[in-house]
Design a binder for these strands. Structure first.
Lengths: 339, 339
DNA sequence: TGAATTTACTGAACCGGATAAGTGACGCGA
DNA sequence: TCGCGTCACTTATCCGGTTCAGTAAATTCA
């Protein structure tokens, strides 16, 4: 089956290629009657403009890119990215933008991919996730002038617009809630320590606890995997002065932590309260269901996509702080037994 | 920053554009000395061929597509697809193929996306997952002559090559294992009933149980979500003659089922044994860890990607049955208490 | 040694759109 | 009635690769 081109439409309509192009793109230069005739023919023969030809003649590639830099075993179970992708798609699909995905091993490889995509003119812009301190991807993107939106700051991104959520507010709410329940020894199992938003959370957690008079607010670094989350939990619970509540930086570690606590004979929430950061169906699935800091990740992704499309269109894009995650209390939190 | 083109290389090397193209693509027509000089220059200035230009001049788009037809809330937590995608990427990245993703709502939309991708010449081929009976996507792909690999058969796919795993073998192993433990009332919570591989599994489950003399082998249809999986479990456990073991068609439903059982005061594995189909870190995370039918989903995806690339290259591709999933016994299975 | 073949290139056409520049017809005001 | 501006197009060029046809020089072979 042959792909229809504008030349085919032009022949059938008895006009030139140029007229067809103007008509289909809503440009002035054709009469309304002709435009409608051309559009009807395009519809009838199922015309879709060849994206390569369009990209080649200076217009956009109508595609954006996303690189994922996490090992496969984390990606498969981490609900965050799929939620984000679903959000991207809501906006992208509506405007017929394609999303190009690449799973990479290191941030270094990520910059290589950006360079290649840029050289190949394969994408009009990219989403940058997991911002780090002195992130090597930022100068590359600035050098290439490749439109991008940075998710997971705030940080120093040069000209690149960024989007983040109010982690300090969220953690304030969570700690406040646990204190109100009577908890005084609250720990946190953090995400990858070199990610900027992990650092933001750690700083906020320390400050909030200090301001509320909790001296022993410890954060144990981890890597978002269930194994590490479980190990960190075990280390925390072995202590004589073990915490009565733990906040986890993602749902997977929270579930693993719950499992470790039960395995050690501790009851949740009787002996230990658990709060998961980022809610997902996973949190409601386990027993007891986990109290979580809920935010609408798909909406977050959709917002990022709108920003990226605006940046690609050359519109000015400002940094945005998305709303604060709010606490969804479930069965995993209660007053500590011995309080 | 200007993108380097072959014209830039040609100028610096003092040859024509054609010679550069031959040199970089390993075609005959240039001397070895010239080829090396050209390759060196390309390396030095960081040349990447413009994918649009390449696609336009008849060569391939060097991209393949994947449509995901599941609601966002399932996608985010279902580890299968991310595992599959990681597997695709292993093969695709090695050959600089891009993966284009689109999340859609219905199989009808999926065919629209295929048509658009084909018309836009955006992808060279697609992965088809979740094969259904009389799947409307198959005739469209055959009509468009768009190379594709079908994952999740076996079924009637016309000329399209397919890849599936030996579900009958896996379920035989699982049922045999549970029987050996002493279980006689085994139930199954199935996946979406209109998916072909769900039907294969249901048929195999029924047959295996019948051949082993288990009369009451019931399959309850579900939709892969935790909520539905939990509800199905509750329905099964309410019965006076409740099953002593349940096999779940995915890990999410298995975890939900575990939670429901515990909530109802049943001990796992004492009162109820649980087997999850498809292992993921999720299964090891919960307490007790779930016995699972393990297969290497990333390898499965990599295999599918190799098949698709071969099909795109015009090589003959045969249908393949991947290896059987094998049982990984963990803490969620034991002899029934009253046996 | 001369013809035939091979090698190593060059030049130009082509893919399918976007778009700047050019053209003829028409309407309108002076 | 002439000239000007506007409309509705057409024509031609460009994007950056691939590829075919052509060509001059080098090599092979009788």
């Amino acid at each position: 089956m042959k792909r229809p081109t504008i030349a085919d439409i032009a022949r059938r309509a008895g006009v030139s290629k140029g007229a067809v192009s103007y008509a289909l793109n809503g440009q002035p230069g054709v009469s309304e009657a002709t435009r409608q005739r051309i559009v009807a023919i395009a519809q009838e023969i199922g015309f879709n403009p060849n994206s390569a030809a369009r990209a080649l003649s200076g217009a956009s590639a109508r595609a954006v890119g996303l690189t994922l830099c996490r090992p496969a075993r984390i990606l498969s179970i981490e609900p965050f990215f799929m939620g984000l992708i679903s959000g991207f798609e809501q906006e992208l699909a509506a405007r017929s933008y394609a999303l190009t995905l690449q799973v990479v091993a290191t941030p270094q490889t990520e910059t290589d991919v950006y360079r290649r995509w840029w050289g190949e003119r394969r994408v009009d812009g990219v989403f940058v996730t997991d911002l780090r301190e002195n992130d090597i991807r930022i100068p590359v993107l600035n050098e290439l002038q490749l439109p991008a939106v940075v998710i997971g700051g705030p940080g120093d991104t040069g000209q690149l617009p960024q989007l983040w959520s109010d982690d300090a507010g969220a953690i304030t709410e969570a700690v406040g809630y646990l204190m109100a329940l009577g908890h005084r020894r609250i720990a946190r199992v953090g995400g990858l320590p070199d990610l900027l938003h992990t650092q933001t959370r750690t700083r906020a957690f320390t400050e909030v606890c200090a301001s509320l008079g909790l001296s022993e607010a410890v954060t144990v670094p981890s890597d978002y995997t269930g194994e590490e989350g479980g190990r960190a939990t075990r280390r925390l619970l072995i202590n004589a002065e073990r915490p009565t509540a733990i906040i986890y930086d993602n749902d997977v570690m929270a579930v693993a932590g719950l499992s470790v606590a039960q395995e050690m004979g501790l009851s949740v929430p009787g002996d230990l309260s658990i709060v998961a950061w980022d809610d997902s169906p996973l949190c409601s699935l386990v027993h007891p269901p986990l109290t979580a800091l809920t935010r609408d990740i798909a909406a977050y992704g959709a917002h990022a996509a709108r920003q990226l499309l605006a940046a690609i269109a050359g519109e000015p894009v400002k940094d945005v702080e998305e709303g604060t995650a709010h606490l969804t209390p479930r069965g995993s939190t209660a007053p500590p037994r011995d309080s």
